[in-house]
């Protein structure tokens, strides 16, 4: 069922799109992708951290936001997609299975920059 989007959010999405084009897109290159692969969590260069902060915001929307789902404790992780709807659990994407939390973290980073057309 289509959701009525409040005016505030429409405006936010407009400005956010320009932030993506002007501030975030120019920072994405092979160097920061490699940096993230080596160290997905912790100290980062300013360039990588700025991109990550943009991705983590997800336009302040929960629908379609990615999470990590630990499918076997200490052994197996997958990407989950939030429904944004209370009572509907995330959809687990089984096509990719990761053997560490860090790998899953990097998998989500790659998926996000790809989905946004940044690579």
């Amino acid at each position: 069922m289509p959701q009525a989007v409040p005016k505030e959010h429409e405006v936010l999405v407009g400005v956010d799109g320009r932030i993506l084009q002007d501030e975030v897109k120019p920072l994405v290159d092979a160097e920061i992708i490699e940096e993230h692969r080596r160290n997905p969590i912790g100290f980062h260069t300013d360039e990588l951290e700025r991109v990550l902060i943009y991705l983590r915001k997800h336009q302040l929307q929960q629908e379609g936001k990615l999470v990590i789902v630990c499918t076997k404790p200490h052994k197996e992780w997958c990407i989950g997609v939030l429904s944004g709807v209370r009572g509907i659990p995330p959809t687990i994407l089984r096509d990719q299975v990761f053997s560490s939390r860090e790998e899953a973290e990097h998998g989500i980073f790659l998926k996000r920059i790809k989905d946004l057309g940044l690579v």
């Binding site: 789902v69 630990c70 989500i108």
Partner: peptide
């Protein structure tokens, strides 16, 4: 699942 700020707060993707 509900808090837009959760991932920003922890600077990691939350694990469920």
């Amino acid at each position: 699942t509900n808090a837009a700020l959760a991932e920003l707060l922890v600077a990691r993707t939350p694990v469920m």
